[in-house]
């Protein structure tokens, strides 16, 4: 028997579960945005229902990690892998909560039309989903150079999401200042944009964790300061 075969097999299963969780969360983010844009309340309800499955999967992964920590007392790369898996499960679960939040906002909006045409918010969502996909790739590759490369590619996208969020907020503020009747619907959209911005931030966290897994270094990928959305035409 190969040394530590059981340990390696269980660690591999945990990683597979993280990928599975990642797929569930990506699906929820995508669907919550699609439901918001298309005013599909049924789809929003489905996202909310599925959040329980995401929570359950996170717990399953965390329990598996605790079991391996308790039983194997891992060190070095093994320890980094388990810590990374736990962190990723937590980051993904929180992303799922943000998707659920967007779905709830969608339900609160009900049959009211959005305060403004949804262009920047879906765009933020597309970038954020792409960031989540790439951050999970860097986790799976476990290659230090690739992890740094992907992290660097996420940083400008994170900036773009921040700038779009800033622009959405400014526009909504103007509309709300113009009429108190706009405040409730404006606030809904601000929450939705905020949730997407947080998803993008957490994708960056995943890329940082992937670097830690590959190298043991704690790196701040460090998005630059959010600027204006002037160049996001």
């Amino acid at each position: 028997m190969q040394v530590r075969e059981r340990f390696d097999r269980e660690l591999g299963q945990l990683e597979a579960n993280v990928v599975l969780l990642g797929g569930m969360v990506e699906g929820s983010i995508f669907d919550s945005l699609s439901a918001l844009k298309n005013r599909d309340l049924e789809q929003s309800r489905s996202v909310i229902d599925r959040d329980d499955d995401i929570d359950e999967k996170e717990w399953e992964i965390e329990k598996g990690c605790i079991r391996l920590l308790r039983r194997e007392a891992p060190l070095a790369r093994d320890l980094r892998r388990i810590i990374t898996i736990m962190e990723l499960a937590n980051e993904l679960e929180r992303m799922g909560d943000y998707a659920e939040g967007i779905a709830k906002i969608s339900l609160m909006m009900g049959d009211d039309p959005p305060l403004k045409e949804l262009i920047d918010i879906p765009r933020m969502g597309e970038i954020a989903v792409s960031m989540v996909k790439r951050s999970l790739e860097s986790f799976l590759e476990r290659d230090p150079e690739r992890a740094f490369e992907i992290a660097q590619s996420l940083s400008p996208d994170d900036d773009r999401v921040d700038r779009l969020n800033h622009r959405v907020r400014s526009e909504l503020f103007d509309l709300m200042k113009a009429s108190p009747a706009n405040v409730v619907r404006g606030t809904y959209l601000m929450w939705a944009a905020h949730n997407i911005e947080r998803i993008a931030d957490r994708a960056t966290n995943i890329a940082e964790r992937a670097i830690f897994q590959a190298t043991g270094e704690q790196v701040n990928v460090g998005a630059s300061e959010p600027g204006t959305a002037a160049d996001e035409s």
Binding site: V3, R4, F7, L75, A76, D78, R80, G216
Partner: peptide, 19 residues
């Protein structure tokens, strides 16, 4: 370094119980 992120793959293999 040694127990967190060893530089030499042989150290890594030893402290993680692979050899």
């Amino acid at each position: 370094q040694i127990f967190g992120a060893p530089k030499d793959p042989r150290t890594e293999a030893y402290v993680t119980g692979r050899i």
